[in-house]
Write a protein that binds this DNA or RNA. Structure first.
Lengths: 143, 143
DNA sequence: CGCTGTTGCATAGGTGCCTATCTTAATCGC
DNA sequence: GCGATTAAGATAGGCACCTATGCAACAGCG
């Protein structure tokens, strides 16, 4: 029963690690980490501004987001200030340096995707995205 | 530029986390973790017996494997004994309890894959695996 | 007003990965 | 045989996730 290692589950894990390694290496010079991107996008687009909303947007748990925001604040990527309407909550915002580096970060990630899909036809790219979306939806439903 | 979150790279990361959560939950009752499987398979099939070979087989770095083997030994899944031919190396073997639970673990993982691919045609499953394999090969080449 | 339940966040501890570095044993060249 | 290189593990420290739990502020209700 050694073919568990040929299942989509394991292959996706391998692919995710490969992507993470590549992205990590290319984002590091910009001062970003792989996990930062949903946060950066959500903050820049104004889709979320509290820890709770960011965690939901990024689809990670609250403590994971808390830890990441702590690192991002330490590294000068975000700022937090007290929410006047709710003593528990803090408004989170991008620093100027983080905002300035966003386009480069996105460019780097798109390039990584192009590299990973070298030799793929347009149609295969679309297929892959569609299959992944359905897979993710199925996994969400099970949990 | 918020569509970085619709790239294969990010979708694969989401899918991998979904799979990991599901597998983690279902493997836990058996005493296994998600990362154990390559090790279990390699040991059972005799494809690797040293830390170095296991790391290569599982495609992770040596220190990661060292840490995992330490936990697996602690949890009674593997045993290590000195290699008579090489004083640096240790022969690693599965314990009886680990070996006994392997079939259940594989069954659980196959079931998770079926759940994740609910509504997929046979052809779509094959396509997904093929695309992932090519993706992984591309990522390997870049690094 | 006070009590209770909910909500937002922090903390503790664990897994699965990583890079960088150190130690020690084996091996190769002279 | 001995010094230099290579190879196997161990260790230190970090990131990105997780669950479980604690705490303090808010919100609803009698």
């Amino acid at each position: 029963m050694s073919d568990v290692l040929s299942t989509p589950g394991h292959l996706i894990s391998l692919a995710a690690r490969g992507f993470a390694r590549l992205s990590e290496a290319r984002l590091k010079p910009l001062g970003f980490g792989v996990g930062h991107l949903p946060v950066l996008v959500a903050l820049q687009d104004g889709q979320a501004a509290t820890q709770r909303d960011l965690a939901r947007f990024a689809r990670i748990e609250q403590p994971s987001m808390a830890q990441m925001l702590a690192r991002m604040e330490r590294d000068g990527l975000i700022a937090r200030e007290a929410d006047p309407d709710d003593g528990r909550s803090r408004q989170i915002s991008l620093t100027d340096t983080a905002r300035a580096r966003m386009p480069d970060a996105c460019a780097v990630l798109f390039e990584g995707n192009r590299d990973a899909m070298a030799g793929f036809t347009e149609e295969e790219g679309v297929q892959l995205i569609g299959l992944l979306r359905r897979l993710i939806a199925n996994l969400d439903r099970v949990t």
